Amino acid sequence: MQTAADISDFSRRDIPLLGKTKPVLLTGATGPAIIVIHEIYGFTPTLARFCRWVRDAGFHVYAPILFGTPDAGNAETTTLKRTLALCVSREFTLLRANKSSPVTDWLRALARLAHEECGGRGVGAIGMCVTGGFALSMALDPVVLASVLAQPGLPALNHAALDIAPADLAYVQARTREGFALRGYRFEGDTICRAARFKTLRTAFGAAFTGTELPDAAGHPAGLKAQGKPPHSVFTGDLIDAAGEPTRAAVDEVIAFFRWALLQPPEAA
């Protein structure tokens, strides 16, 4: 029987790109590639669960490990050590607005590699929490045909701003005029990804951005609510895996979005 931390159905590859090698967990045997980028916790059992849902819908999943250990043994807790390490890292831009994190260059290279390996029209990308906005920056590469921003939390001190350079934002905006679309998800009471950031995304992208804001009541009672905090992680720790639950329905929406963008013939997409 598979335990929560068992990821024997994933394989690990250490992938060198742009002079840097990072571990990537992969699962899936058919279909286009989806890049699933973990939260500040690293790769966790609930993220592995999300990856399996995407895989079972007919996609290859590439889950790069940007921090934490390359397994599902990472606890869903934020540590001071992890936060400080990200603050001083040259790969991440946690506090500055209107600036893309350098690690997104590597992620775009991964998307190109995944497309070469898996084929299809292109790839999809989803980022979560501190990596939520990375899915937006990844859209600078035309191989990325669908981006999902799950509770994008950066920049941390400017809740209305985006973590993407103005010129990069303008390029993605131009892509939306050619049919590129984005989706975003957050809980209404989330204090990390606040409503102001979704307002900025709606202003920047108009109808090309579909932002879904779930009521806090839809968050799992054993998630952040158990710590006296509003729910935050729509697709992982605060998700309720049961029929009729808004968070589980959000998973189905994301999968349908990826299918629309990646599996339909070009004239139908």
Rank of each mutant, 00 (worst) to 15 (best):
I15S: 02
I15R: 03
P16C: 07
P16G: 12
P16L: 12
L17A: 11
L18V: 08
L18M: 11
L18Y: 08
L18H: 13
G19N: 10
G19Q: 10
G19W: 09
G19A: 12
K20R: 15
K20C: 09
K20M: 12
T21I: 11
T21L: 10
K22D: 04
K22V: 14
P23R: 08
V24G: 11
V24I: 11
V24S: 08
V24R: 06
V24E: 01
V24C: 13
V24M: 07
V24F: 04
L25P: 00
L25M: 13
L25S: 00
L25F: 06
L26H: 10
L26M: 14
T27V: 14
T27L: 15
G28E: 09
G28S: 09
T30R: 15
T30L: 10
G31I: 06
G31S: 12
G31W: 07
G31C: 13
A33C: 08
A33V: 06
A33Y: 01
A33N: 10
A33D: 01
A33H: 04
A33P: 03
I34W: 02
I34Q: 02
I34F: 07
I35R: 07
I35F: 12
I35S: 10
V36K: 07
V36R: 03
V36E: 14
V36Q: 13
V36C: 09
H38N: 03
H38V: 07
H38G: 05
H38E: 05
H38Q: 15
E39N: 09
I40R: 00
Y41D: 03
G42N: 09
G42C: 11
G42S: 11
F43K: 02
F43T: 01
F43S: 01
F43A: 03
F43D: 02
T44N: 06
T44D: 03
T44A: 03
P45M: 11
P45K: 06
P45N: 03
P45V: 09
T46Q: 14
T46G: 01
L47Y: 06
L47M: 15
A48Q: 02
A48F: 03
A48G: 15
F50W: 13
C51N: 11
C51H: 01
C51A: 15
C51F: 05
R52C: 09
R52M: 13
W53D: 14
W53R: 15
V54H: 03
R55P: 08
D56N: 15
D56T: 06
D56Y: 08
A57Y: 06
A57D: 13
F59N: 07
F59C: 02
H60P: 01
V61H: 06
V61G: 00
Y62Q: 02
P64Y: 08
P64C: 08
P64S: 10
I65L: 07
L66Q: 01
L66T: 03
F67Q: 14
F67Y: 15
F67N: 10
F67G: 02
F67W: 15
F67E: 12
G68W: 04
G68S: 08
T69W: 00
T69S: 15
D71Y: 05
D71H: 04
D71L: 08
D71W: 04
A72I: 01
G73W: 00
N74W: 02
N74F: 03
N74M: 07
A75I: 14
E76C: 06
E76G: 02
E76F: 07
T77K: 10
T77Q: 12
T77Y: 04
T77C: 03
T78W: 13
T78Q: 12
